[in-house]
Design a protein around this nucleic acid. Structure first.
Lengths: 157, 157
DNA sequence: TATGAAAGAACCTGGCC
DNA sequence: GGCCAGGTTCTTTCATA
């Protein structure tokens, strides 16, 4: 699907504030409220916008620790095997197969370092996992809303 | 600030759908619409909810490639130095200082591999950067909304 | 301190041009 | 894409426990 500048501006506005009214978004991008609604409906149908989420401060919910874990797997492990295995752990908030020595990289959120350790232990117990290599996050410097490149479009005003 | 089960259920409902009406959230958690609104207002003021974002399919916007880049820095590089430097690049959607050999781990979104290369080149040109080690993402397996642990609370119904 | 009910204002939604 | 009308939702106030 083809996205024009208006679509991109609307998306940027909704990434910034998903509860903005159609009229507010319209004023930012230069459209009427109903025109914005039509485009948003279309963007959702086409899958460009996949939904709307509250952004949460993880610490406020007790998730004060995060870690990245590299997974080294057996020769013929499929990405879907890894996906299925890690999806069982709510603590795994991100996962991807990657190039390089490791086969996959996991992003984990936990309540403390002990909790991280327990999760890694259980993941390492999966049959296809040969070994893991983990790094605890010391301080987070950047955290963009998932799926989004920051400041992608410059809004007028 | 203290969060009870009702607050956590409300947060879970809004992470799932930030545009749900207060009445809808209320029905999930067992409160009236106005009670839900009061709690949401309080959660925003207290900082537990930091905002509301549209979830976007990066590919729909042309961001088809992602990479993780380890940064090895000079001895007395401060986290704030790294933060300032990488914040200049909209392609850096995540960054954190970490334990282990590397000093920081960056998460990059770009239009293609050439684009990733250009960004890494410019980051490597920062005075404090000694070297980098990067891994291109082959396929994404898990991607939770930022800051959130999946399925944190079990909603009734 | 927190809740539910109610009322006016604001907003959404769909039809029409 | 804009305009408009009817239905829904938000927001605030009030009374209650």
């Amino acid at each position: 699907m083809e996205l024009d500048r208006l679509d991109r501006d609307i998306i940027a506005a909704l990434v910034d504030d998903a509860r903005a009214t159609y009229a507010e978004v319209g004023q930012l991008v230069g459209l009427s409220a109903s025109a914005v609604k039509r485009r948003v409906d279309r963007l959702r149908e086409s899958g460009a916008i996949t939904g709307f989420s509250a952004r949460v401060a993880p610490e406020a919910l007790g998730w004060t620790t995060e870690a990245y874990v590299e997974l080294f797997c057996q020769g013929k492990t499929k990405p879907s095997d890894i996906a299925l295995a890690v999806a069982k752990f709510p603590e795994v908030v991100g996962a991807a197969t990657i190039t390089g020595e490791a086969d996959a990289l996991l992003h984990i959120r936990a309540t403390d370092v002990r909790h991280v350790e327990r999760v890694i232990e259980r993941i390492a117990a999966e049959t296809f996992v040969v070994r893991t290599k983990s790094a605890i996050v010391l301080s987070r410097l950047v955290d963009a809303p998932s799926g989004v490149v920051r400041n992608e479009t410059r809004l007028i005003g």
